[in-house]
């Protein structure tokens, strides 16, 4: 474990917590893409499938973190699609998730470390995570604005994988550890946040709200 991965995971936890708090406190999921949250839930389940296969006692924080990620993301989907369904902005959350899932699954079968079920599920989860935020960014571009709390969620979510890139640089340099698939997908994922990061740093940090030219 290094500082970058630690802060990456903390940033990821913060993102999940911020979103849950926003929906729970405002009792509304306006401005939140349910599709992105579904894709994240799929990512966690396919990536941590080993938790279900050979369940081992919760003997370390890693297992606990995996269970937190899976349960929090499923609970978030429950809030969006069931509890606060009336506030779900389905009209603007219109990016076709199939256009993300099918290519990720196809690519996972073509480019992977080992052609076995668990490895392909893990690779699928990595590729899917890289593009899972797109419906959320698409929704913001359609509505033309993002609530400040949603901007904080996106900033934490984007920072998590950006910090992982620093973690991979660190591990390459000190542990000569390289996972090309995770690195390439992580770089693509972080690049997708670039224009949002620019807006966040130039606006939200100064107390303004993000409003896109509609």
């Amino acid at each position: 474990m290094n500082i970058f991965r630690l802060f990456g995971d903390l940033s990821h936890l913060a993102a999940i917590a911020i979103l849950l708090l926003k929906i729970w406190k405002t009792r509304s999921c306006a401005g939140v893409s349910g599709k992105t949250q579904l894709l994240f839930a799929v990512c966690f389940i396919t990536r941590y499938i080993d938790l279900f296969l050979h369940f081992v006692s919760l003997y370390n924080t890693e297992k606990v973190m995996k269970l937190i990620y899976i349960s929090a993301s499923v609970f978030t989907c429950y809030l969006i699609f069931f509890k606060f369904k009336a506030t779900y902005d389905g009209n603007h959350d219109s990016m076709r998730a199939e256009f993300l899932i099918v290519p990720a699954a196809g690519l996972a079968c073509l480019i992977n470390t080992k052609f076995d079920a668990i490895e392909i599920l893990w690779t699928f989860s990595i590729y899917l995570e890289a593009v899972a935020i797109l419906p959320q960014l698409f929704l913001i571009s359609k509505t033309g604005e993002a609530e400040t709390i949603t901007s904080h969620y996106l900033f934490a979510q984007g920072s998590y994988r950006a910090l992982y890139i620093l973690n991979w640089i660190y591990r390459y340099h000190y542990e000569s550890h390289v996972d090309t698939i995770a690195i390439v997908a992580g770089v693509v994922q972080t690049i997708l946040y670039c224009d949002f990061f620019y807006l966040y740093i130039t606006k939200v940090v100064k107390g303004q709200k993000i409003v896109l030219p509609a």
Binding site: D9, R47, E62, K66, K114, D116
Partner: peptide, 10 residues
């Protein structure tokens, strides 16, 4: 069967 290489990252 070969167990998937253990992934030590989340």
């Amino acid at each position: 069967s070969s167990v998937a290489q253990n992934k030590d990252e989340l």
